[in-house]
Amino acid sequence: MATVSMTVNGQAVSGEVEGRTLLVQFLRENLNLTGTHVGCDTSQCGACVVHVNGDSMKSCTMLALQADGAEVTTIEGLAQGGEMHPMQQAFQDNHGLQCGFCTPGMVMSAIDLVAKNPNPDEATIREQLEGNICRCTGYHNIVKAVQQAAKATGG
């Protein structure tokens, strides 16, 4: 076992992990932050996407020890003072989710995409969300949600 320390949603945390412990396991099992989902566990679906030092990454394809010293943000870290993040609000407003399983990863990827492309067109949104699979919505309302959030956050 080794000790890992990182900042998660603004809080300093640490824990004992094995070499093979995945970041997503550390978040869900050590920290009880179960908003980050595991869909495929094979790096395909994006349900596990979190931000590590500001970039979106698949937390099922990263070791907890690789995040030692990093700033991690999960879906639980987005709402501020009881107000949803504009991207979360946009998903609700546009019916961008049905079962909600893909939604945490989808929202985390979408926030990164708008941060890097403040005024994304539809093709850019679809391309940049290639790593996130949704079995319910057919993606149209997700694209609309991202467009609304991009406008709301000054794109």
Partner: peptide, 9 residues
């Protein structure tokens, strides 16, 4: 290559 998250790592 791959998708945005793969390209980030």
């Amino acid at each position: 290559i791959g998708d945005a998250q793969v390209r980030n790592r």
